[in-house]
Computed example of a mutant assay.
Amino acid sequence: MVKLLFIMRTKNIFHKRVTTLCIILILFFVNSKLYSQIIYTDIPDATPNATFSLDLNNDTVVDFIIYFGGSASTIGVMCNPQNNNAYSGNFVNETYLPWSLSTSNTICASLATWYDFNNPGTLALGTNIGYWVGASDKYLALKLIVGTNTYYGWARIDILANSASFTIKDYAYESTPNACIQSGQNNLDITEYTDKNLISIFPNPFVASTTIQTNRNLKNANLNIYNSYGQIVKQVNNLSGHTISLSRDALLSGLYFVKLTEENNVIADEKILITD
């Protein structure tokens, strides 16, 4: 009888510990999801004559350069990662070829191969080399290294069938280190039509407060301030008119991102810098 009670007590303790562990794991997972956020940047479709400097996380540091390569007779479009950043692709016939992904492909460490600045990639060359010849709404898988952290993202690109022109449409990255992102994923339930000319911010940088001026007559608009991790750190709601006064309050010095929305539309975004 004593032995039976001991066994039952041991099982109860085990079950309680397992239950507690499960709860901790669930809370950890939910908490990770709460702080996980995809930072999406919609730009006016850019079709450069020479190069496009891609700043994936909008910190004013160029992360990738998309440019024309090849020769005078056979033009191509290249991707050159900067610093320790990389693209995903493969190596065929002595050429590094970045993948041309469709929507909803998983981008993270599980992708087979990543190539850095030592191996610029050929997206398209002429009419028959590379996975991007004639591509429309395809996604370039990108890996971003910031300090000791690794982030994954994508850029949506079109390339003509003769590789003579390319268009950058938008890009995004997952702000949680080492977290996966799906190609085309942006976690937005709102329509974006960003136009940075819609707002001006002065002073910027600022110490205590600044003024945001817009040429749009706002009605019940909302202003969100994000930190570099993509977390909302300040909100100003129910805005009307052309002028917004923004106070620093308890925000620390550093770089922040401003997003102005109205009626489920992102009408402008910009960077602000707070100094001491």
Score class of each variant (00 low, 15 high):
Ala208Cys: 13
Leu273Trp: 14
Ile23Lys: 00
Gly69Val: 06
Gly184Ser: 02
Val2Ala: 12
Leu251Val: 05
Phe6Pro: 02
Phe14Met: 14
Tyr171Pro: 02
Phe206Ile: 00
Lys169Ser: 02
Ile66Asn: 03
Gln213Cys: 12
Thr122His: 09
Ile232Leu: 06
Tyr35Val: 06
Asn220Tyr: 07
Ile201Phe: 10
Asp63Thr: 00
Ala208Tyr: 12
Ile244Thr: 02
Asn187Gln: 02
Lys219Ile: 13
Gly121His: 03
Thr214Glu: 01
Thr10Glu: 14
Phe166Arg: 07
Asn215Gln: 13
Val18His: 03
Pro203Cys: 10
Asn93Leu: 00
Thr167Trp: 04
Gln182Ala: 09
Phe257Ile: 08
Asp42Asn: 12
Ser165His: 01
Lys16Cys: 11
Leu101Ala: 06
Val18Trp: 03
Asn238Asp: 13
Arg9His: 13
Asp249Ser: 13
Met8Trp: 13
Trp114Pro: 04
Tyr35Asp: 00
Ser175His: 01
Leu27Ser: 07
Leu239Thr: 03
Phe64Val: 08
Ala179Pro: 03
Ser88Phe: 10
Leu252Val: 13
Asn215Thr: 15
Asp137Phe: 09
Phe29Arg: 00
Ser247Ala: 14
Thr261Val: 01
Leu260Lys: 01
Ser102Pro: 09
Ile159Gly: 08
Asp137Lys: 11
Leu123Asn: 03
Glu263Ile: 12
Gly69His: 01
Val92Pro: 10
Gly254Thr: 00
Ile13Val: 15
Cys22Lys: 09
Phe257Leu: 15
Asp249Pro: 10
Lys11Trp: 15
